[in-house]
């Protein structure tokens, strides 16, 4: 007689549900600029600079946020208010709960760059993921000799990580520009696009790796400038932004040329994205 009900012969070991977030407490909220803020969560665990987390607020939504720190007992995220979730996060305070799953993505393969000279080019909130690199460099100081920064912001008010910048100016070759200075405040920054700084700079491609993160148009121009200066595609790493839903390499929204931004990215070596103009 056939059995009425069939059960699995051997129960498989229970695997974690990949969609479920974990609750975390906000331990620090800091306004960085009129539309950017920093949230520190008490996330415990390993992550690499360049990776990202899915941050959710039930009822508001879920958004991918890149890490702006390098630590094992907390997680900093620099967030710009652009969408529903980020606008909600902007009103949080210390002690509030947020829901996080991750880390996702590949991050910057920092160990591969020991002994190399680093060139970091960031625009606006694209500076946030690069901050993780700088914190990594701080902890592994002996392995990196020459670190050069080119950071661009819209106005002096929009400059992020002002306290850190003071520090960075001492340690690294630090170049900061602002697009405009509407209030004519006194500033140590050049008033121009960050791409102009890169264009004017004398950069030697020898033994260098470049990290670019910023608005798509800025990244595109920088890549062109660097290629003119003799940099090759395998020296340039860019951080990409895409719509992401699952962050597990399933939902398909973030696909670029068959690669998942959430798995194979968000950091790509330029030659991996041979023709990224199509996507």
């Amino acid at each position: 007689m056939p059995r009425t009900k069939t059960r699995r012969e051997e129960p498989e070991p229970k695997k974690e549900n990949p969609y479920l977030p974990k609750a975390c407490k906000v331990t620090l909220f800091k306004r960085e600029s009129p539309d950017c803020f920093l949230i520190r969560a008490d996330w415990k665990g390993k992550y690499e600079p360049g990776q990202f987390f899915q941050v959710s607020i039930p009822g508001i939504g879920e958004a991918p946020i890149s890490v702006a720190s390098y630590s094992e007992d907390h997680l900093d995220m620099n967030i710009r208010e652009v969408g529903n979730v980020t606008k909600y996060l902007a009103n949080l305070k210390k002690g509030d709960t947020i829901y996080i799953r991750g880390p996702y993505g590949n991050g910057y393969p920092m160990e591969k760059f020991y002994g190399k000279n680093l060139l970091l080019i960031g625009g606006g909130s694209g500076v946030a993921p690069l901050k993780g690199i700088l914190m990594y460099v701080d902890k592994h100081n002996d392995n990196f000799s020459d670190v050069t920064l080119y950071f661009g912001f819209r106005t002096p008010d929009d400059i992020l990580f002002k306290d850190d910048l003071k520090n960075w100016r001492k340690k690294f070759q630090c170049n900061v520009s602002v697009d405009k200075n509407p209030k004519h405040v006194k500033t140590a920054c050049d008033v121009c696009f960050v791409t102009s700084l890169v264009e004017k700079a004398k950069l030697d491609p020898e033994n260098k790796v470049v990290f670019i993160c910023g608005p798509p148009i800025m990244m595109k121009i920088c890549v062109g400038l660097l290629k003119n200066k003799g940099f090759t595609e395998d020296q340039i790493y860019i951080s990409t932004e895409r719509l992401m839903n699952c962050a597990l390499g399933l939902c398909g929204h973030c696909m670029i040329h068959g690669k998942y931004t959430c798995l194979d990215g968000p950091v790509f070596r330029l030659d991996e994205l041979s023709e990224f103009k199509h996507d």
Binding site: G59, E62, C251
Partner: peptide, 17 residues
């Protein structure tokens, strides 16, 4: 491919992902 979207009930308290 799929979307992940929240469905919120009328009381705005219960959320289904």
């Amino acid at each position: 491919c799929f979307d992940m979207m929240e469905d919120i009930d009328a009381t705005l308290k219960k959320v289904q992902m």
